[in-house]
Each structure stands twice: as structure tokens, then as C-alpha cells.
């Protein structure tokens, strides 16, 4: 198992860097080219959500990403330290409910639509989002 860890300050500008790193490692791990856009978007969503949560609760704390090549899977875990509200399940779309800042849970819905396998672990001490995609074994 090869692991890359990345920590970054809770600044929106760093989310792009995190996306690029994740996509590069996914490619090297053997994730199919057709899935790389999904990796890029899902990791970006998870990092954006974490940045917004940290900016609201603990702007001085870093966000951590672990990228693993694990038995034929490329696995990414994005961890934040912001206390999590209960993750709301999908709700019917109503434009009146939507606002520019409604995207926290919407981002998770996007991740669930993109990643092959997703688990979200919210807790009072932070949220871990783990997602994975198939990768070529032995790359």
C-alpha cells in the first residue's frame, strides 16, 4: 500500500492544488482515464466542503487528505476538524430552498453521484469523507 498525505490551510485557493494532486496520483495508480474527471470533481467537492466548514468553525486548522493505492482501489480520505451537523439526506429539489450557500450537503450529493464507493463519517470532532475508485493492480 502506497500512501500520500497532504495537508493544507483552509483557503479556497488550495482546493485546486488538492484536485490536481489527487488527479495526478489517481492517474499514476492506474485509475482509468475516463474516471479521472470524476476523481477530480469528487475530491474538489470534498475539499471545498471541508474548507467552508473550517472557515466557519476553525480557520486556523489544516485539512488533511490521504490518497492510498489499496489492493486494486484508489482511495481518498478528506478529513476536517469542524464539528459536523447531521448530514441531511437527499431532499426534493425546490428552487425556493436553494441559495448560494446551500452547497455543503449538495456537494456530498455530487460526490455520491460520482465516486464508485463513498462513506461519510460526520462527528462533533469533524467529518471524514472516504471515497474510492477501481485502479489497475500493481501499477
Amino acid at each position: 500500500m502506497a500512501t500520500v498525505e497532504l495537508t493544507f490551510s483552509a483557503l479556497p485557493a488550495h482546493v485546486r492544488t488538492a484536485r490536481l494532486v489527487a488527479t495526478a496520483i489517481a492517474r499514476r495508480t492506474g485509475v482509468e482515464e475516463s474516471l479521472l474527471d470524476e476523481v477530480r470533481l469528487a475530491v474538489g467537492e470534498a475539499c471545498s466542503r471541508a474548507v467552508e466548514a473550517h472557515r466557519a468553525h476553525c480557520p486556523g486548522e489544516p485539512i488533511r487528505i490521504e490518497l492510498r493505492d489499496d489492493s486494486g482501489r484508489f482511495e481518498v480520505t478528506v478529513s476536517d476538524l469542524a464539528p459536523s451537523d447531521e448530514i441531511k439526506q437527499e431532499q426534493p429539489l425546490d428552487l425556493g430552498m436553494l441559495s448560494d450557500s446551500f452547497m455543503s450537503n449538495f456537494g456530498i450529493a455530487v460526490i455520491e453521484g460520482l465516486a464508485d464507493d463513498v462513506e461519510v463519517f460526520p462527528s462533533p470532532k469533524g467529518t471524514n469523507i472516504r471515497m474510492s475508485w477501481p485502479a489497475a493492480v500493481g501499477v
Binding site: G44, S48, L95, L98, D100, F102, M103, F106, G107
Partner: peptide, 19 residues
Amino acid sequence: DFLDSTGLGVLVGGLKRVR
């Protein structure tokens, strides 16, 4: 090249304003 849910939120916000 790239659009995430933050961008979707901005478009939805714009739609609400023009409507």
C-alpha cells in the same frame, strides 16, 4: 473546464435573482 457545486450554487443564485 471545471464546475463544482459552488459554481452550481452561483448559477442557482443568479436564476433566483432574475426570476
